[in-house]
């Protein structure tokens, strides 16, 4: 009995430690106080002022940039990653293993390293840094995740499906569209959602590739804001909204993963 209580307590302490920071942000997004930690009564004013684009133009601008970059990067990396996964899957065993290894390196590689190396690459190629370079950088680190999420679908697939389609008169292209793509679609969607969240989240790579043309994403904006002294209060409701959105996306991904297993 005591053992059981101890186990329960341990679990709850852990959960509180993990989620306390997020909970604090969410709770304090419903009050007006300028300084985080002062409770001045329940209010939705911060949400209202966030929606009022005129007042916090730069914050909303950063938010829109973040979403635009994430959507473009996720879409492109989903396409690239799926095609790459199909290619890798059709290699011989040794090549497949080697490519799988090469694919995991960027995932395990530190973001700072990726950021610095991309920065050096863009500089040495003479590309002006801005929106395009950020998108390119995000595509770079999102694609391996898509490959990782599409691969298991290919491995589960009946190896004769592609041949069956050819056998029934489909050209290789038709077989790809009508049979392979529908089969790996769940993996592609999971990969897309994963890429989306990773892209929204990213700071290290973004900060190295964003240049100095005044472009801001959410993460760089918050960083700059914090350094100026004190966070803009409207960040609290924004963080709360992003948290909820990400949470919903995560639940969707997990549900899909569960379905695939069954």
């Amino acid at each position: 009995m005591v053992k059981k209580i101890l186990m329960q307590t341990y679990l709850w302490i852990l959960l509180v430690l993990l989620y306390a920071p997020i909970l604090i942000i969410v709770v304090f997004s419903f009050t007006e106080a300028k300084v985080l930690g002062n409770w001045t009564g329940f209010s939705l004013n911060l949400y209202k002022s966030l929606m009022n684009t005129g007042a916090h133009h730069s914050l909303m601008n950063a938010f829109v940039n973040t979403i635009a970059i994430a959507l473009i990067a996720a879409t492109v990396s989903t396409l690239l990653g799926s095609v790459a996964a199909i290619g890798i899957f059709n290699l011989r065993a040794r090549g497949r293993k080697a490519m799988g290894f090469v694919n995991t390196i960027p995932i395990l590689n530190g973001d700072i390293i990726t950021g610095v190396s991309l920065f050096l690459l863009f500089v040495s190629l003479g590309i002006t840094q801005g929106f395009t370079t950020v998108v390119l950088a995000h595509i770079t680190f999102c694609t391996p995740y898509v490959v990782l999420s599409v691969m298991p679908r290919l491995k589960q697939m009946n190896p004769n499906l592609y041949e069956a389609a050819l056998d029934l008169g489909a050209t290789p292209m038709q077989a790809l569209w009508k049979v392979i793509v529908p089969e790996i679609r769940p993996g592609m969607i999971s990969g897309f959602l994963l890429a989306l969240t990773i892209s929204i989240d990213d700071f290290a790579v973004t900060v190295f590739t964003i240049g100095n043309q005044g472009l801001e994403t959410l993460s760089t904006y918050i960083y700059a804001d914090a350094r100026k002294g004190g966070l803009t209060p409207e960040l609290r409701p924004l963080s709360a909204i992003i948290f909820v959105v990400i949470l919903v996306l995560l639940i969707i991904i997990n549900r899909r993963a569960g379905k695939v297993k069954r």
């Binding site: 009946n158 004769n160 499906l161 069956a164 056998d167 029934l168 529908p182």
Partner: peptide
Amino acid sequence: NTVFQKYALFPH
């Protein structure tokens, strides 16, 4: 036309 050992029906 071929009939495969593991059927190879299109699951979708």
